[in-house]
Structure formats: structure tokens, C-alpha cells
Lab assay of single mutants.
Amino acid sequence: GIDPFTGEAIAKFNFNGDTQVEMSFRKGERITLLRQVDENWYEGRIPGTSRQGIFPITYVDVIKRPL
């Protein structure tokens, strides 16, 4: 089901994660935001896939912030 505490964002740019914990994505992908890790990073996942990880806040347009 849908978790009411998650947020939502759209990727503004392609992001290629450097490490296992970073999640790569392509511009235009819809991302579920799980939490804000710190002032620069979100943790999120791509709905319908097993992809999950952290990524820079500046790479996405936030539609709804996670609670």
C-alpha cells in the first residue's frame, strides 16, 4: 500500500551513484522519498522496482516532502 509518510519527487537530472548505498536514476523518473538523511541527501526508492538508496537533494524536484 501507500505509506502516508513518504514523499515524492521527480528526477531533474541523471544521477549515477558511486557506491552501493547510492541509487542511480534517470531524468524524469518518479521517486518515492523515504526520509531526508541530512541537508544534502534523501533516501528513496523507485516504485515498482527493487532500487533503493540515497541521492543528492539537488538532483530532484520535490513534489511532497517525506514526514
Results as ranks from 00 to 15, higher is better:
residue 43 E to H: 09
residue 66 P to Q: 08
residue 66 P to K: 06
residue 32 T to E: 15
residue 5 F to V: 09
residue 3 D to I: 11
residue 25 F to L: 06
residue 42 Y to E: 01
residue 49 T to C: 03
residue 52 Q to D: 03
residue 3 D to T: 10
residue 5 F to R: 12
residue 30 R to Y: 13
residue 20 Q to Y: 12
residue 39 E to F: 10
residue 34 L to S: 05
residue 4 P to M: 13
residue 17 G to W: 02
residue 57 I to S: 11
residue 9 A to P: 00
residue 63 I to E: 05
residue 45 R to F: 12
residue 65 R to K: 15
residue 10 I to Y: 07
residue 33 L to S: 03
residue 23 M to F: 08
residue 38 D to Q: 06
residue 31 I to L: 06
residue 63 I to V: 09
residue 18 D to M: 13
residue 50 S to E: 11
residue 17 G to D: 03
residue 5 F to H: 15
residue 57 I to D: 06
residue 17 G to V: 03
residue 19 T to S: 11
residue 45 R to C: 14
residue 27 K to P: 05
residue 47 P to S: 09
residue 10 I to V: 12
residue 1 G to H: 11
residue 51 R to N: 03
residue 53 G to V: 01
residue 61 D to V: 14
residue 34 L to M: 08
residue 64 K to I: 05
residue 11 A to M: 01
residue 9 A to S: 04
residue 36 Q to S: 07
residue 24 S to Q: 06
residue 13 F to K: 11
residue 55 F to G: 01
residue 33 L to A: 03
residue 27 K to L: 07
residue 47 P to V: 10
residue 35 R to H: 09
residue 53 G to T: 01
residue 44 G to V: 01
residue 43 E to V: 08
residue 47 P to A: 11
residue 14 N to R: 05
residue 52 Q to Y: 10
residue 20 Q to A: 14
residue 1 G to Q: 12
residue 61 D to G: 04
residue 12 K to F: 04
residue 25 F to D: 01
residue 27 K to M: 09
residue 1 G to D: 14
residue 4 P to Q: 13
residue 16 N to D: 14
residue 52 Q to S: 09
residue 1 G to T: 11
residue 60 V to L: 05
residue 55 F to S: 00
residue 51 R to S: 03
residue 57 I to A: 14
residue 30 R to W: 09
residue 58 T to D: 13
residue 9 A to F: 04
residue 37 V to D: 02
residue 13 F to Y: 12
residue 23 M to H: 01
residue 17 G to Y: 02
residue 15 F to M: 02
residue 20 Q to N: 12
residue 65 R to A: 15
residue 49 T to W: 02
residue 41 W to C: 10
residue 10 I to A: 03
residue 25 F to P: 01
residue 15 F to N: 02
residue 19 T to W: 07
residue 22 E to M: 10
residue 31 I to H: 00
residue 11 A to S: 04
residue 4 P to Y: 14
residue 36 Q to M: 08
residue 67 L to G: 15
residue 18 D to C: 15
residue 10 I to G: 01
residue 61 D to A: 10
residue 58 T to N: 13
residue 36 Q to P: 07
residue 30 R to P: 06
residue 24 S to E: 04
residue 42 Y to D: 00
residue 26 R to V: 15
residue 47 P to T: 11
residue 63 I to M: 07
residue 35 R to A: 08
residue 19 T to Y: 08
residue 24 S to A: 08
residue 14 N to S: 09
residue 31 I to G: 00
residue 33 L to V: 09
residue 6 T to V: 10
residue 2 I to L: 12
residue 50 S to A: 12
residue 16 N to I: 13
residue 44 G to N: 00
residue 57 I to R: 08
residue 20 Q to K: 13
residue 20 Q to M: 11
residue 49 T to D: 06
residue 52 Q to K: 12
residue 18 D to P: 08
residue 10 I to M: 07
residue 48 G to Q: 06
residue 28 G to N: 06
residue 46 I to R: 01
residue 11 A to Y: 01
residue 48 G to N: 09
residue 32 T to W: 07
residue 26 R to D: 10
residue 40 N to W: 13
residue 36 Q to W: 07
residue 26 R to C: 15
residue 27 K to Q: 12
residue 54 I to V: 11
residue 29 E to G: 01
